[in-house]
């Protein structure tokens, strides 16, 4: 009798799981549409639908200012949280992320340095150059973190190392920004705090290409990522080429976080908090489910935070990082408490 019940239970479970996944994706889709709509429709002036199509001014504001900003927030937020998911897998550490490990700050430093270098010579640096600079910075910090990871085995020590690297990079950036002589530095200062403002369609096109190509690669890696979650030894036993796989994981997560930093500056806590929230929502850590979920969740989270940053004390705009920290940090705290 008992056995029959368990059998029944077992045959039911996959269906239940499928239902849970569907519900999860459903909720995320609804939120995504809702926040895109709200984001486009909220600002210092509100327009009705007819105004948008009749008035040139309204059309321009919606299409050229708000739309790119909303899309950028969605794409970059998604990228950031997928990057966080990859780093958590890599380090087997639930509180790893591009920001806490100092990778975003490393990217920020190199981007700031190259911006100043270009500005002094009166050259306008293209976004692609900025992405490359950010990538170089990410890899630099990543290298230091990996060296630290070889020596320290404890998860918390590694995170502390990352935070320290982040502080050093931020301090150097602040120093450089303070002493740089250019009127354009105001922009740089805003950027170094993190913001989605000032996005153009050109920016959106570049980030979309970079992020989606990387995402496809990440998704194709979901099988070995799943194996890697059982630990390196078992992954190897299943036939994963662990060395190559690790390099890919590092490269892909760095590209994603570098892209975010290049366009919007360092954004805190999205990389840790969103994957954790998604794991709770979906009740699984399976990469094939988590990768799309993290992307959607990150998009929703950043849209929401950007909306808050814009509207809470309008017309003054908050820096995006302070908003993501307010909503993301409690999630991280909760995670750590539960672990302990």
């Amino acid at each position: 009798m008992l056995q029959r019940k368990t059998l029944q239970f077992m045959s039911m479970m996959p269906k239940n799981r499928a239902l849970r996944y569907m519900t999860g994706y459903g909720i995320l889709s609804i939120l995504l549409v809702m926040f895109v709509f709200l984001g486009v429709n909220t600002g210092s002036v509100t327009y009705s639908l007819s105004q948008i199509f009749q008035e040139e001014m309204a059309y321009r504001i919606i299409l050229d200012i708000r739309m790119p900003r909303v899309l950028a927030a969605a794409i970059l937020g998604g990228a950031l949280s997928v990057s966080g998911f990859l780093l958590q897998t890599f380090f087997h550490n639930p509180i790893a992320g591009p920001f806490v490990l100092g990778i975003s700050s490393g990217a920020k430093l190199i981007v700031a340095l190259s911006m100043i270098w270009f500005l002094e010579r009166g050259i306008h640096a293209s976004s692609i150059v900025m992405v490359l600079a950010a990538f170089a910075g990410s890899m630099l910090s990543m290298g230091v973190v990996l060296l630290a990871a070889r020596r320290v085995t404890s998860m918390s020590t590694l995170v502390v190392c990352g935070v320290m690297i982040g502080y050093i990079c931020s301090a150097v950036t602040d120093f450089v920004v303070t002493f740089a002589e250019d009127s354009n530095i105001v922009n740089l200062h805003n950027w170094s705090l993190g913001s989605f403002s000032g996005m153009s369609w050109y920016h959106v096109r570049i980030m979309a290409v970079v992020v989606f190509v990387t995402l496809v690669c990440v998704f194709l890696l979901s099988k070995p990522i799943g194996a890697y979650q059982l630990g390196e030894d078992y992954a190897r036993n299943m036939g994963v080429n662990v060395k190559v796989f690790r390099v890919f994981l590092i490269l892909l997560s760095s590209v994603l976080s570098a892209c975010v930093t290049a366009f919007a500056g360092p954004i805190s806590f999205v990389g840790i908090a969103v994957p954790q929230l998604m794991k709770m929502l979906f009740g699984t850590a399976k990469p094939i489910i988590m990768i799309p979920a993290c992307f959607m969740g990150g998009a929703v989270f950043c849209l929401f935070c950007d909306l808050t940053a814009r509207t809470l004390f309008a017309p003054t705009e908050l820096s995006i990082s302070s908003v993501t920290a307010v909503f993301g940090a409690p999630v991280v705290l909760y995670m750590m408490m539960r672990k302990a």
Partner: peptide, 10 residues
């Protein structure tokens, strides 16, 4: 193997 694994949510 002897080492213990701690898979998340599996």
């Amino acid at each position: 193997m002897t080492q213990r694994i701690e898979p998340e949510l599996m």
